[in-house]
Simulated assay, not measured.
Amino acid sequence: MNKQELVDAVAAATGDTKSSVGEAIDAILDVVTTTLARGDTVQLIGFGSFSTGARAERAGRNPSTGETITIPAAKTVKFTAGKSFKDLVNGA
């Protein structure tokens, strides 16, 4: 499902217009990304939690040349599914 399909599904479920649903989804995504950029966690009960993590600098290898390279440290985004979501996906 892409973003437009999500907008269509939410609009059909709520009876709101596609434009207002699109604006609401854009606002939600903006708040979530801003919150994660600050390093805070976003927890949606029943769905899951989004948080940031850190990946340390590490050594890697260039597959073309075999040369050893240094892969710089980076921030990552993590998602942990909530129990209700896991149960739904697993058919429990």
Rank of each mutant, 00 (worst) to 15 (best):
L36K: 00
T41H: 09
D87I: 04
G48W: 00
P63V: 09
T52G: 03
K78Q: 11
A13W: 06
D8I: 06
A37G: 09
I69H: 01
Q43R: 12
G15L: 06
G48A: 03
A59T: 13
N2I: 14
V31Y: 09
A37Q: 07
K86F: 07
S64Q: 15
A13H: 12
A54C: 07
E23F: 10
I25M: 05
M1Q: 08
A12I: 13
E23G: 14
Q4Y: 10
R55D: 08
S51P: 06
T52Q: 02
V7C: 02
S64T: 14
G39A: 10
D8K: 03
F50P: 00
A12P: 10
A24P: 03
F47W: 01
N62R: 01
S19E: 15
D8E: 15
V77Q: 03
G48F: 00
L6E: 07
A81L: 05
I69C: 05
G39P: 00
L29D: 11
T33E: 13
T34W: 07
T14R: 02
T33F: 11
F47V: 04
R58P: 01
L6H: 06
I28D: 11
A24S: 15
K75R: 05
K3S: 13
T14P: 01
A12Y: 10
K18G: 10
A24H: 04
K83D: 11
K86G: 10
G82H: 00
A74M: 12
S49N: 05
I45K: 08
T52A: 06
G66H: 01
